[in-house]
Simulated scan of single mutants.
Amino acid sequence: MMIKGKARAHANIALIKYWGKRDDELVLPMNSSLSLTLDCFYTETEVIFNDDIEKDYFYLNNNIQDEAATKKVSDFLDLFRNSAGIKSSAMVKSINYVPTAAGLASSASGFAALAAAANVASGLNLDNKDLSIYARQGSGSATRSIYGGLVEWRRGISGKDSYAVPVDDAKWDIGMIVVIVNPKEKLISSREGMKRTVETSPFYTSWVESAEEDLKQIKIAISKRDFEQMGLIAERNSLKMHATMLGAKPPLSYWEPESVLVMQIVRELRKEGIPCYFTMDAGPNVKILCKLSESYKIKERLTQSFHEEKIIITGPGPGVTIL
Rank of each mutant, 00 (worst) to 15 (best):
L150Q: 03
S74H: 13
K186F: 07
N182P: 02
V208G: 07
E294F: 05
V198M: 06
P29W: 01
L269S: 04
G273R: 05
Y134L: 08
G156I: 06
G315R: 09
S122Q: 01
Q304L: 13
K87E: 11
C290L: 10
N62Q: 15
E44M: 00
T43V: 14
G85F: 04
D24G: 11
V167Q: 09
K287N: 05
Y57M: 12
M2E: 15
S132H: 11
L131K: 03
V73T: 09
N61C: 07
A142L: 04
E192D: 15
I188S: 12
R301G: 03
A68Q: 11
T197N: 10
S190G: 13
K224N: 15
L114G: 04
I313Q: 11
L34F: 08
F111I: 05
V27Q: 13
K299Q: 12
S32H: 08
S94Y: 01
I313G: 04
W172C: 02
K297I: 12
V260E: 13
V47I: 12
R81G: 05
I86E: 04
P284V: 00
V120Y: 09
D78K: 14
I13M: 07
A108Q: 11
Q217H: 07
P99H: 06
P166G: 13
I16V: 15
D23Q: 10
D51P: 01
P316D: 04
A116T: 11
L187W: 07
G5H: 06
S210K: 13
A117N: 05
A221L: 08
A243V: 10
E308Y: 01
E212H: 13
N96W: 08
V92S: 03
R196C: 05
S107D: 00
L114H: 06
S122N: 04
A11M: 07
E199N: 12
I311D: 00
N285V: 00
V266M: 02
L246M: 12
R236S: 14
L126M: 09
I180W: 02
S145Y: 05
S158F: 03
F227N: 04
R267I: 00
F41Y: 12
V167K: 03
L15P: 05
L114D: 05
L15S: 09
I177F: 07
L60N: 03
N119G: 03
W255P: 00
A108H: 09
S189N: 10
N96C: 10
F76L: 02
H242C: 11
A211S: 15
S206Q: 15
A115H: 04
